[in-house]
Amino acid sequence: MTMTASSLDITVDDISVTYSNAKLALYNASCMVMPGTITALVGPNGSGKSTLFKSIMGFLQPSQGKIRVGGFPVQKVQKRQLMAYVPQSDEVDWNFPVSVFEVVMMGRYGYMNIFRTPRQKDRRIVMESLERVGLVDFRNHQIGELSGGQKKRAFLARALAQEGKVILLDEPFTGVDVKTEKRIIDLLLQLKQEGHTILVSTHDLASVSTFCDRTILLNQTILASGTTQEVFTEDNLTMAFGGLPISSLRQMTGQMTGQSSHIVNRQTSQNAEVEA
């Protein structure tokens, strides 16, 4: 079918989501993710990034609106293993008794028989996926034993094993060191070359312009969308990040890092005092 051959787009048409505590998380959100691009979904904490992701993936039912992937309803696309999702770290039970290998193998379940017996091909693809993210040596570790960056890569490997054409990554760079971030970005760029459509949520503005073709700016609704250059205007960012001019925002983050290092210093000096 044409659906599997070419890159797929995502169309979000007038979505509103209200949680059961009557909290309106998203309203009248409409946007489009172009096929074969890396698109950033940018917004401050609590702006509804995860909510939009979960709506696209069909994990929650919007109170209104419509979502299409490659022109098809989401469920149909999922049945064909075309959509992979890399969850935000705080949504995973890291104490669950599964190994890295087993987690990545879960990406293959959709291709297996009803008993989920892995075939040779499934094992091969799992190993290849592990190799691409550099976790082959960690395959027998329990998932909680991995570092922050390795955890992200393990779930990215699962998405690779699933061989989906559309990949959604919820905050893949949070709690990850610069080296891992670069590694993940390189992998995403490769995947784009292979024709995948990738949607990444982040609030790390600095890295977005380095690898994202397009950006969607979100705060409860879509504020702007287009090429990253078009979207990253002072005005837009001010609007998204809540009335603060962007220059002061940068100052604030600078101050914050300064402060935290100050705290660390004080703690070490306290320890030194105890020692003495």
């Binding site: 993936m57 469920q75 999922q78 959509m83 969850p87 879960m106 990406g107 379940y109």
Partner: peptide, 11 residues
């Protein structure tokens, strides 16, 4: 472990 993934692969 991960009901969302189960859903994402069409189960």
């Amino acid at each position: 472990f991960d009901p969302n993934h189960a859903k994402a692969i069409g189960l």
